[in-house]
Simulated assay, not measured.
Amino acid sequence: MPYFTTSDGTEIYYTEQGEGQPVLFSHGWPLSSDAWQVELKVFADAGFRAIAHDRRGHGRSSRTYTGNDMSTYATDLAELVDHLDLHDLVVVGHSTGGGEVVRYAAQHGAGRVVKVATAGAVPPIMLQSATNPEGTSIEDLDNIRAGVLKDASQFWKDLSSPFYGANRPGAQVSQGARDDFWRQGMLVGLAAAYDCVKAFSETDQTEDLKSLDVPIFIAQGDDDQIVPIAAAAEKSIKLVKDGTLKVYPGAPHGIYGAYQNELDQDILDFIRR
């Protein structure tokens, strides 16, 4: 399995398929590159070099106690891109991964990144405040941390329901998809899972979005129960210079089923424009 070692000694796992223009996928919390298995094949079949990595502390990468913050995630990504010597690069991020690719593109991507796409991404900032009343309360975020610390296995099982909208009438998500969410969640190190809550919720990426000088496609389901759309996509589109927003009616946070099929095609169309 391919690994590379970052400047601070962290081993990062990555996988790739296909040839052509590189498209790099960054996963959400608490998942791994396995969350992008469908996209790796779909985009490789479409003529792209599809790449995905396991964020530090997640999946098959080192179970780090330190560096579980958005800036370090972006630095790790920059070092991976340098390691693979990627150019004409498109970066795609879901949820926490959306924050990672936005920070990477804004602070490290000059001369390499040509387009950015996000889905259910956490920027500009998820935490509720007087200036961000649409966000998630610190009490709810503390409950996430407490759930992870108390019984992570059960927490991942429970979280898979709102993640995929399985708690909605007529939901089509399979038990297998929910089980795979649990499986990937069980691979994350506890320290990384706990610290990443602060990273994805309290990192203010307003300036990252403002400084992006490449086109960005911002996607989010309007039934996202994890990242509030009013604090995320609807605010992000107002901050970027060259953005396209698409809201998917009824779609949840998790990328699955009809939403996944439509989103993948929309990202391919966005890249080809």
Score class of each variant (00 low, 15 high):
residue 220 Q to A: 13
residue 178 R to Y: 01
residue 205 Q to P: 00
residue 263 L to G: 02
residue 2 P to Y: 03
residue 100 E to M: 12
residue 9 G to R: 11
residue 125 I to R: 10
residue 225 Q to S: 06
residue 249 P to V: 08
residue 273 R to Y: 05
residue 38 V to E: 14
residue 130 A to L: 14
residue 41 K to N: 15
residue 114 V to T: 15
residue 104 Y to T: 11
residue 70 M to I: 05
residue 116 V to L: 05
residue 251 A to K: 02
residue 91 V to H: 06
residue 145 R to H: 00
residue 228 P to W: 00
residue 216 I to P: 09
residue 200 F to E: 10
residue 265 Q to H: 15
residue 37 Q to W: 13
residue 245 L to G: 05
residue 15 T to F: 08
residue 265 Q to G: 06
residue 215 P to L: 13
residue 109 G to T: 05
residue 59 G to S: 02
residue 99 G to I: 05
residue 191 A to N: 09
residue 154 Q to T: 14
residue 35 A to Q: 14
residue 212 L to G: 06
residue 89 L to N: 06
residue 196 C to T: 15
residue 152 A to S: 14
residue 167 N to A: 00
residue 22 P to I: 08
residue 98 G to L: 07
residue 129 S to G: 08
residue 11 E to N: 14
residue 59 G to R: 03
residue 208 D to T: 03
residue 100 E to A: 11
residue 174 S to P: 10
residue 118 T to F: 02
residue 134 E to V: 06
residue 273 R to V: 12
residue 256 Y to S: 09
residue 80 L to Y: 06
residue 29 W to E: 07
residue 111 G to D: 06
residue 107 Q to A: 15
residue 134 E to L: 09
residue 44 A to K: 02
residue 82 D to N: 11
residue 56 R to Q: 10
residue 142 D to Y: 02
residue 86 L to S: 08
residue 91 V to R: 00
residue 128 Q to P: 06
residue 39 E to P: 04
residue 107 Q to R: 15
residue 32 S to L: 02
residue 110 A to Y: 11
residue 171 A to D: 10
residue 271 I to S: 07
residue 221 G to N: 01
residue 62 S to M: 12
residue 183 R to L: 09
residue 11 E to Q: 15
residue 201 S to C: 05
residue 107 Q to C: 12
residue 233 A to H: 09
residue 175 Q to K: 11
residue 51 I to A: 05
residue 192 A to D: 11
residue 66 T to M: 13
residue 68 N to T: 01
residue 23 V to A: 11
residue 90 V to K: 01
residue 150 K to W: 06
residue 20 G to F: 13
residue 123 P to F: 10
residue 214 V to F: 02
residue 271 I to M: 05
residue 192 A to W: 12
residue 82 D to W: 04
residue 37 Q to D: 15
residue 253 H to E: 00
residue 41 K to A: 12
residue 175 Q to Y: 08
residue 253 H to T: 01
residue 199 A to K: 04
residue 175 Q to L: 13
residue 77 L to N: 13
residue 167 N to F: 01
residue 13 Y to S: 14
residue 102 V to E: 11
residue 150 K to R: 13
residue 207 E to N: 13
residue 165 G to T: 05
residue 96 T to S: 15
residue 130 A to Y: 12
residue 203 T to C: 04
residue 142 D to Q: 12
residue 192 A to I: 12
residue 106 A to Y: 08
residue 103 R to N: 13
residue 74 A to M: 07
residue 36 W to G: 07
residue 154 Q to E: 12
residue 92 V to P: 01
residue 189 G to W: 10
residue 119 A to E: 10
residue 26 S to D: 07
residue 194 Y to C: 01
residue 154 Q to F: 01
residue 201 S to I: 04
residue 98 G to S: 09
residue 29 W to K: 05
residue 92 V to C: 10
residue 170 G to I: 07
residue 80 L to Q: 03
residue 128 Q to W: 07
residue 120 G to S: 11
residue 136 T to Y: 00
residue 189 G to T: 11
residue 17 Q to Y: 08
residue 13 Y to I: 09
residue 212 L to H: 08
residue 145 R to N: 00
residue 213 D to G: 13
residue 114 V to I: 14
residue 158 D to K: 02
residue 75 T to A: 15
residue 259 Y to L: 00
residue 146 A to T: 11
residue 110 A to M: 09
